[in-house]
Write a protein that binds this DNA or RNA. Sequence first.
RNA 1: GUGGCUAUGGUGUAAUGGUAGCACUAGAAUCUGUGGAGUUCUCAGAGCGGGUUCGAGUCCCGUUAGCCACCCCA
Length: 437
Amino acid sequence: MKLKFQSPTGMHDILSEEQKYFKKIHDAVEEVAEFYGFKRIETPILEETDLFSRGIGLSTDVVKKQMFSFRTKGGDHLTMRPEGTASVIRAYLQNGMQSLPRPIKLWYFGPFFRYEKPQAGRFRQFWQFGLESIGEEGAVRDAEIVQVLYAILKKLRLKNIAIEVNSIGSKCCRPYYRKILVNYFKSRSSSLCANCQRRIKENPLRILDCKEEKCQRIVLQAPQTMDHLCRDCHQDFKEFLEFLDELELPYSLNPHLVRGLDYYGKSVFEIFSSSENKEEGQEEGSPALSKNALGGGGRYDGLAELLSTKKENDTPSTGAAMGIERIIGAMKKDKIKPSHKAKPQIFLAQLGGLAKRKTLKLMEEFRKARIPVLESLGRDSLRAQLSAADKAGAKYTLILGQKEALKGRIIIRYMSTGKQKEVDMEKIVKEMKKLCK
RNA sequence: GUGGCUAUGGUGUAAUGGUAGCACUAGAAUCUGUGGAGUUCUCAGAGCGGGUUCGAGUCCCGUUAGCCACCCCA
């Protein structure tokens, strides 16, 4: 098929089938987040490039090679947002939310952009929702975020949700731990994959997350962050786990969990949906259980300060984000159908110019009465209209012909039996309201 | 950024290198005021560019896109 135009690589139209899933997820997020006191915020899709490069970290993949950046005619450097947290903190600072009672709890839902090679569950334009809880420290806020994410997934009836948690320490202990880790890896660098040998310098924490088998073996023996936390961070993490226990959340410790964005510190977590791999056709040796990251988050205490020119008060914050398309993927694997709206049961058919004019007006009356109706105003033959009504699965067809229009009457046709009756035009909306109950 | 697989109407598919066919969908007629079946008709196809060959949907190369894996992440 040759098309003159095609959507850009990794960017897709979201058609009505998919919209049902989006709506279902959006509604679940809205309901749960609002219940927990989060307020909706929507930030621009474009931001100054520096907001991300400073906020997310210059050495991260996201900033180094995944941003859609460009220069405006006026010379500004803008970037299509690759994630939400930096924007939300910018909005917090710009709108003087420092003067609001803490914590400031916000949620968002929208499209994000990363220049990557698309594959399963990974697109260049993708949708996320996120939660940010700004201005209060304490593990209870981290636990609350996890709880809200979990509640949303549960509301969507997802099964097999797993949460992995870790603490990567903060300013006070991470540098020290990093040094120990570097030493450890250096002494064994010959057994690491090429990638990880490079990482020793650039981002040693990420080695913990490497999937190469030989690296995994080294990582197993590596010093763990948890053993090198300062007292503060240790206490904080302990409390975090206690809250999770109390909430009876299905979490497990993953000492190798590190997040890809620089602003994280202390508690971090990721949420997975695992599902049995039972695709049609025989899969060649794929694992019986596939684990899919739906989202993740953690604490980012220093970000507000980093993004501000003034001296900010301490703004300890925590948050998380989840990928909509990935949740949809998990829903499909779990065979969860998005509830679809009841289909309209009424079809309006018309014959002749006068009737056509009246039909358009009649539609408006049905709309005001909140009764959905279908039509086929473009077709003139009654046969074609009835056929369309049938295909649409209408229960009743209202037939307004020239004769009826002149008399101020209209015909109700019961599609299953073929019986018809004529009623006054004025009473039709009321009548149908009764029938459709 | 690296690698693997794939590419035929709107959709799903078929054709030892030799006339691009089928099904569904859509539109219409049969029936100019009455749907569901039948019949008939219509719209509509090789991603793009090269090469091999008398001849390419089929083989080769390139390219683009899609899917998948690595990487990274949501």
